[in-house]
Nucleic acid binder design. Structure first.
Length: 279
DNA sequence: ATCCTATCCTGGCTGC
DNA sequence: TGCAGCCAGGATAGGA
């Protein structure tokens, strides 16, 4: 669902409508979306601030706020499975899945919609503190070959759940884990400490290129959930090699793609391209 | 340290 | 056709 490429796309698309705008109010129709704050306090925290920056960390969209020239907290949005952000005129009817509406001084509002209510629109004074436990960004310099080799070696975990662990590496979810593991020829249940260095390098490169290409294509849409803030589907689903392709031929070798469960997650793989670990 | 299960939610699908 | 039951999925908490 929304993973790094989708979240990056959303951040980029809402940015122009938010930068420099002052927040004039907030309407909360599902309080639990706020992750603990009551609606009243939330409104007080954000109202009167203006937006100085819109960026992404892991699967969080981060809106930096300021009061005059003084930094004044952050809005953090996590889409989880079904969250969406849109900047639209305040009066727009966004349907019954509207959970939070942030009003802006130009007559538009930032709408947070979320069918399944797992997503969050959180206010925090200290974003750094909230991100303390999160692993490196896969598209940053920090995600180096040396770091990745060492990080894989120092754990004894199955590759797929390790890639999904946000404290290990930021932004990877079910789709891009399956796609990158296939591209690297690695079985999702292969133990991380048994991946040879050169193969770790290959996984690192595949992760980066899969994520970059998915960002270029504005993410993946295959059900009704993910749409860009402009209302359009992404197109990376057309590039899927294994995800959601169980029972159909592997695009690399023709063997039928298999679906198994790994760490309680639906997992797609080609058993020829990704041979099972021994033992 | 790692793994497993339940929880949060709803819409969509399956099977009767 | 109607309806109950199951499933997906990101993150987290708590237990083994």
């Amino acid at each position: 669902m929304p993973e790094l490429p989708e979240v990056e796309t959303v951040a980029r698309m809402v940015r122009p409508g938010l930068l420099g705008r002052q927040i004039t109010g907030a309407e909360v129709s599902w309080e639990r979306s706020l992750g603990g704050l009551d609606a009243e306090t939330f409104r007080d925290r954000v109202t009167g601030s203006s937006v100085s920056k819109v960026w992404r960390r892991a699967k969080w969209i981060v809106v930096d706020l300021k009061q005059g020239d003084t930094p004044k907290g952050h809005l953090l949005c996590h889409l989880r499975m079904s969250g969406r952000l849109h900047v639209e005129p305040r009066e727009a009817d966004m349907g019954s899945y509207e959970r939070v509406r942030i009003d802006l001084d130009d007559g538009n509002s930032l709408f947070f919609l979320d069918v399944r209510k797992f997503g969050r629109m959180v206010y925090t004074d200290d974003a750094d503190e909230r991100f303390l436990g999160i692993g490196p960004e896969p598209l940053s310099e920090e995600f180096s070959s040396a770091w990745f080799r060492g990080a894989l070696r120092s754990r004894k975990r199955q590759l797929k759940p390790l890639l999904l662990d946000q404290s290990f590496l930021a932004g990877i979810g079910n789709i891009y884990a399956d796609e990158a593991l296939h591209a690297a020829g690695l079985h999702p249940q292969r133990r991380s400490d048994r991946v040879p260095g050169p193969r770790a390098d290959r996984l690192r490169e595949e992760l980066r290129s899969v994520l970059k290409e998915a960002i270029r294509r504005e993410g993946s849409s295959f059900d009704t959930f993910y749409r860009t803030p402009e209302g359009q589907p992404g197109s990376y689903q057309d590039q899927f090699l294994v995800y959601g392709r169980d029972g159909r031929p592997c695009r690399a070798c023709g063997r039928l793609v298999k679906k198994i469960v790994v760490a309680q997650r639906g997992t797609h793989l080609c058993t020829r391209c990704q041979p099972a670990p021994r033992g």
